[in-house]
């Protein structure tokens, strides 16, 4: 398999915009071509080779090594292949991606996978605000794909999402699923406040109890069979320890809302 390795040797002093670090872009380039790709270091145009040592060739898989917390837009617009980051990453990881897979061994900044339509992003540690969200001013967030955060994530996860799956293995911040149109968000830890505010449709699940907005109404406590399909899938994707048999077979409290919108959304909280 063709693998290209990038190793960060010059840490950027200001944010580096590197949306070209993507199998889709690397596909047609030689090693030299990759080194000469333009990146924006603040407002200065530089070459990718000014910051990264490039080895290997091909684009089926890209391995990036180093502290990339100041590098933005990695994998943006990606449509195929695999991108593995051995370290932290900055904002806008996988923005607008439509396919392929991104795996980050460290943590990610804000705006993981905004407006993505397909593919998969996995963050092994924590993520910032606005995971899988719409950009400010846009009415629709992600329209497909899957985002897995193994640690915690901050506010406004899945803002205005229309389709897709977002999973947070730890705790979520406030306004999870705000203005959600459809899709599924599963939080295995605690939810913050104002979950599902303004949601029209969609599903927000938590394995913990959570504060519920007064515009949501309790329907019943039952066993939602479809969650078994999600939970079995999550067990196969690294969440086996957190999803126990009691969750697989257990009951959930169903709250319907948001009453100020269509009232067709749901929050499902595990009944302890």
């Amino acid at each position: 398999m063709s693998v290209t390795h990038l190793k960060l040797y010059t840490k950027p002093e200001v944010p580096l915009e590197a949306e070209m670090i993507s199998p889709t872009v690397f596909a047609s380039l030689s090693q030299s071509g990759i080194e000469h790709l333009n990146v924006m270091h603040g407002n200065v145009k530089c070459n990718l080779g000014d910051f990264f040592k490039v080895t290997g060739k091909g684009a089926a898989e890209i391995h990036v090594e180093g502290d990339l917390s100041g590098v933005k837009l990695i994998g943006a617009g990606m449509s195929e292949g695999k991108l593995i980051v051995d370290g932290d990453v900055g904002m806008h990881l996988g923005a607008g991606m439509s396919g392929g897979e991104i795996e980050v061994m460290g943590s990610a900044g804000d705006w993981v996978g905004p407006e993505m339509s397909g593919g998969r992003i996995t963050i092994k540690k924590n993520a910032g605000h606005m995971v899988g969200s719409a950009f400010r001013g846009q009415s629709t967030g992600i329209t497909g794909g899957e985002i897995y955060i193994h640690g915690n994530a901050k506010n406004e996860i899945g803002s205005a999402m229309r389709r897709g799956l977002i999973v947070v293995g730890g705790d979520a911040g406030d306004f999870t699923g705000v203005n959600m149109l459809a899709g599924s968000i599963i939080v295995l830890g605690e939810l913050g406040i104002r979950t599902g505010a303004g949601m029209k449709r969609g599903t927000i699940v938590s394995l913990q109890d959570a504060p519920i907005l007064p515009s949501f109404e309790y329907s019943c406590t039952y066993h939602p069979l479809f969650l078994r399909l999600y939970f079995r899938k999550l067990r196969e994707n690294g969440f086996r320890r957190k999803i126990q048999d009691k969750h697989l077979n257990g009951k959930f409290k169903r709250y319907c809302g948001d009453g100020i919108e269509l009232n067709r959304g749901e929050i499902l909280l595990f009944e302890r």
């Binding site: 389709r163 599903t203 039952y222 939602p224 069979l225 479809f226 399909l229 899938k233 067709r264 749901e266």
Partner: peptide
């Protein structure tokens, strides 16, 4: 109108509310 669709691993399924809970 109360049915809900879910797309899991590319397979769409429907949750149809019934008196017992849901039919998937």
């Amino acid at each position: 109108g109360h049915q809900i669709s879910k797309l899991i691993d590319g397979i769409r399924s429907w949750r149809i509310p019934v008196m017992e809970g849901e039919f998937l």
